[in-house]
């Protein structure tokens, strides 16, 4: 069994839906930057577009880009990771409730406030009735989604899977998190990355996902053991894993920014800019750790 990244697409603070960031990254000197807009017209009619928040537009645009690139328009699974979900609609409903009281509220913001709004909008857009799930586990929400997809392949339940990481950030919540010293040295941003995975190696395959591991409160020994065990099982010597420099300086920081690390690693691997094996490590605030093992196709 192999799990291959057949296509990947991003919308971020870099030029959307392309790889310009690799040679000409846009640089910023602000603490918080929202994602740049893509041209959504090729993906959404104007009426649908007006009804959707930007997080949903980005999810549809990145999803449709990988659908169109691969011709896989009815994937066997749609799985999304999102740390905070549709926080803009959540805030709108919450502030209306807190400021205007409970008697005049409208349903629209509530309907589109749940975390799974994103995966279900993708499913509705594709008219895709297959396996559908959403993970919301802090800084490893995306890796949880990826792990679920990987297991569905391992269990032979799917041959294709659309996996995404989608995050929005609003000024109020950025400020609130700033208050508790949440943000590190990198700029706070939003996230939109979609991957089309398939069980078959093809000419356009970007990288092979070999394993995905999540750990809670791991000791350094537990982490080393997980890497050693996986290396032995995959027949790769533990020293052969290249651990790339983080792309946070390029794409910024969000709860699901590990999706950009995977995206960038796959793009670089596909272009022959890396070694044969890559290990992506995410240590989220010392409590949740993820390991993603990749190999060249």
């Amino acid at each position: 069994m192999g799990v291959y990244i057949q296509a990947a697409a991003q919308i971020s603070v870099q030029n959307p839906l392309c790889d310009d960031w690799l040679d000409n990254p846009i640089t910023y000197d602000v603490p918080f930057q929202k994602a740049l807009d893509a041209d959504y017209r090729p993906f959404l009619d104007p009426i649908a577009s007006r009804r959707m928040g930007k997080i949903l537009k980005r999810a549809i645009a990145t999803s449709m880009t990988v659908v169109e690139a691969t011709g896989i328009n009815n994937p066997d699974a749609i799985i999304v990771g999102t740390g905070l979900g549709c926080i803009e609609n959540t805030e709108k409903f919450l502030l209306a409730m807190l400021r205007e009281g409970e008697s005049l509220l409208q349903p629209t913001y509530f309907i589109n406030s749940t975390h799974n709004t994103i995966s279900s909008h993708i499913a509705n857009h594709l008219k895709c009735a297959s396996y559908n799930s959403t993970y919301v586990h802090l800084g490893v929400s995306f890796e949880s989604a990826l792990l679920d997809a990987f297991m569905q392949f391992q269990l032979g339940r799917v041959r294709t899977a659309l996996v995404g990481a989608h995050e929005e950030m609003i000024l109020n919540y950025f400020n609130v998190l700033q208050r508790v010293g949440y943000w590190g040295e990198n700029m706070a941003t939003e996230t939109a990355v979609s991957f089309m995975l398939e069980d078959t190696r093809r000419d356009h395959s970007m990288a092979q996902i070999r394993e995905v591991i999540l750990l809670h409160n791991p000791t350094p020994e537990r982490k080393e053991e997980a890497i050693a065990d996986t290396s032995a099982r995959l027949g790769v010597s533990p020293g052969s894993w290249e651990i790339p420099a983080s792309v946070k300086p390029i794409f910024g920081e969000s709860l699901t920014n590990q999706s950009y690390e995977l995206y960038a690693a796959a793009v670089r691997m596909h272009r022959g800019l890396t070694g044969d094996h890559i290990l992506l490590i995410n240590d989220y605030r010392g409590t949740e750790t993820s390991l993603i093992f990749l190999s060249k196709c």
């Binding site: 740390g83 979900g85 749940t114 975390h115 799974n116 995966s119 559908n132 799930s133 959403t134 993970y135 919301v136 586990h137 802090l138 490893v140 929400s141 949880s144 792990l147 999540l214 750990l215 809670h216 409160n217 791991p218 537990r222 409590t287 949740e288």
Partner: peptide, 22 residues
């Protein structure tokens, strides 16, 4: 996800956690 952490850490010893929201 913090909710899951608080529940797990009340008992300790969990090797991996995740949180679902559908």
């Amino acid at each position: 996800g913090v909710c899951t952490q608080m529940i797990a850490d009340r008992f300790g010893g969990f090797d991996m956690l995740s949180t679902l929201s559908t």
